[in-house]
Structure formats: C-alpha cells, structure tokens
Amino acid sequence: MPDAGITAFADWIATTSLSHLIAQKLWAIPAIQSVHIMSLAIVFSSALVVDFRMLGLMSTGQPLSAIARRFLPGVWIALIFATISGLLLLIAEPVRSLPTWEFQGKMLSLLCVIILTLSFQKLIAARAPAWDAMPGVPAGAKLAALVSIVLWILIIFGGRWIAYHAG
C-alpha cells in the first residue's frame, strides 16, 4: 500500500484553508458527523430492506421488483449526502483518517457493496417475473444479499473504528 504517498497527501490537505476552517470551528465536526449519521441511516436501512426481502424475511407479500424500485433510489440519494459530509470530515482531519487501514478497508467495502447493489438493481429488474412470485430469491442470490448486509455493517464498523486507530 502506498502509505508514504497517502500520508503526504493527507498532510497537504491539512494545510488547506478549508481544512483549517472546519477543524477550528468547535461545532463543525459534530454537526457534519450528525448529517453523516442521518445519511448513512437512510443508506443502510434502504439497502437492508431490499436485502431482507431477497432473503424472504420481510415484505414477502410484495413483489421484489416493487420493493427494489421503492427503496434502492434511497440508497443512491442518501449516499450523495453521506459522501459530501464524509469528504468534509476527511478534509477536516485527513491525517487522522486517510492513512488508517480502518478507513481504507471501509472504502474498499463501500466500493464492493456499490457494485453489488448496482448488480442487484439490474438483476432484480431482469428476473422480475420469476423472482417477484417467490418469497425469497434462489440460494446464490440469497448469499449475495447476506454478503451485502455484512459489507454494510463492516462499513459502519470501519467508520467508527477510525476514531480508535492506534499508532
């Protein structure tokens, strides 16, 4: 991992005026974190409702494609707000977050779960007639839904654990 490059980049961000502005306002970081938590609450819940429906645990009386159409846009819209607030937090405290394995693991998990969710969206639409009639999807897709839940939980753990990064 190019740690020296990332650390140098983090050091540079810390010298910018935007970074100083956010870091010096006592209320700014908790306020931005609150927006981040509200956004992630919508992202996480929207994704999990679709995952639970795929697993046959929730809303089994309704077609999967209808659930996906209702909730997946929430993932993408709230993800924009989570990304903006997350970027501001990064700019405020780059050295504390960017070089840590917790942050890097969180971003890797996020990339994986975005790709997974995009493929769910396509697959659910493509298989609509067959999958809509079933309470849960076939075993392979169920496993993918389970992986999605685990990835989202890892993302939340990674984010919180940045604050406890040692050394």
Partner: peptide, 9 residues
C-alpha cells in the same frame, strides 16, 4: 451505530 441507523432509517 448499526442499530440506531436501522431504527432511524
């Protein structure tokens, strides 16, 4: 955080 995110969402 995981639990409260699901509650509030």
């Amino acid at each position: 955080v995981v639990a409260l995110a699901f509650v509030i969402g």
